[in-house]
Amino acid sequence: MSKKRVLTGITTTGIPHLGNYVGAVRPAIQAARDEDTESFFFLADYHGIIKCHDPAMIHASTQAVAATWLSCGLDPERTTFYRQSDIPEIMELNWILTCITSKGLMNRAHAYKAAVQDQNAEGGGDHDQAIEMGLYSYPILMSADILMFNANEVPVGRDQIQHLEMARDIATRFNSRFKPLFTLPEAKVDENVELLVGLDGRKMSKSYGNTIPLWENDKKTQKAVNKIITNLKEPGEPKYPGESPLFEIYKAFTTPAENAEFTRLLADGLAWGEAKKLLAARINAELAEPRERYAALTARPAQIEDILQAGAQKARQKARGFLDQVREAVGIRPLK
């Protein structure tokens, strides 16, 4: 029985924070340990330059994201871990798929429609003028990422389901027009994956400025945790879930029994300040060893590069032969 292929892409546009760790990194690495799964993880740096036009950030993020996944337990021997830009076969497949994708399909993409709506709100002339082709064609490149390795499942948030549906549409059109080569991927939306709330109770996001850093030291983690919003209840007054994001963040780092005890302590009057110390201690305890590994890796970026190049070699071995089949199917073949 062949293994199920699961593919995960991580865009290189920022430095990972605690919400990324809880919502994406930790569950994906746990899932990759399944003996019946063949996992592909890639740094989506070509996707990154669609919205991020700061070369220094793309470069720094590539290192930080790679070091994050490796430090948190991603095993490059058991998985295929690579940088998107190191696999030229993906970009060639991207062009082949572009040639068979209808403009109408791309016109329906949520990101494109939202960008047009923003332009309409600003007024002026041609509302497509400020929309670049990277944004417009993003779903095709994502399709190439997925279809190149015939992934069976792609873990995504609900905002990405449409892109998986587009990948299936594109694959179906190719399979019908030329040859049935592509597996139709399934979107995997795990309702049990935690979306960590931020300091202000909204989703933890760098755009909101409400994140807790992942790779800072214990003291800076405590300083960030201290900024979690609470009410004005004094020590001794009962405090309940819903009154502060503190409860939800603590839950992400404990067992159900431990979380119940924390909730009881606050209901019995534990001070907010003491509760924040307990939370920071939990976070720092879980991340102590990963932080050591992260510091060691980022101090030796050449080691990260070696791992990525080994992963690229593994990925290209799979991609090259399959792309040859795709080229043959569309008529790009040697003259004999």
Rank of each mutant, 00 (worst) to 15 (best):
S2T: 15
S2E: 14
K3V: 15
K4N: 11
K4V: 14
K4H: 07
R5C: 00
L7W: 09
T8D: 02
I10N: 11
T12M: 06
T13Y: 03
T13Q: 00
I15S: 06
G19K: 08
A24F: 00
A28G: 09
A31Q: 14
E38Y: 00
E38I: 05
D45T: 02
I49V: 14
C52N: 15
D54T: 10
D54V: 04
P55A: 08
A56Y: 10
H59Q: 15
A60K: 14
S61Q: 06
A64H: 07
D75K: 01
E77V: 12
Q84V: 03
I87R: 01
I90Y: 03
E92P: 05
I100Y: 02
S102T: 15
N107M: 13
A109S: 15
A109G: 12
A111D: 08
Q119H: 02
G124N: 03
Q129W: 14
L135K: 05
L135W: 09
M142Q: 13
D145Q: 05
E153I: 11
V154F: 05
P155F: 10
G157F: 04
Q160A: 06
Q162P: 06
Q162R: 14
T172C: 14
R173L: 05
L181Y: 02
T183K: 15
L184I: 15
P185H: 05
P185E: 06
E186M: 13
E186R: 15
K188W: 15
V189G: 06
D190S: 12
N192D: 13
L196M: 13
L196K: 08
K206N: 03
G209E: 09
G209A: 02
N210C: 01
P213H: 05
N217T: 12
K223S: 13
A224L: 02
V225Q: 07
K227Y: 04
K227A: 01
T230N: 00
N231A: 07
G236A: 01
P245W: 01
L246H: 03
I249M: 02
P256N: 01
A257W: 08
N259G: 08
A260G: 09
F262A: 10
F262P: 01
R264L: 12
L265E: 06
D268H: 09
L270N: 01
E274G: 05
K276M: 00
K277D: 07
A281E: 11
A281G: 00
I283E: 01
A285I: 01
L287C: 03
A288F: 13
E292C: 11
T298Y: 02
I304G: 07
L308V: 10
Q317E: 09
K318D: 04
G321T: 10
R327E: 10
G331I: 10
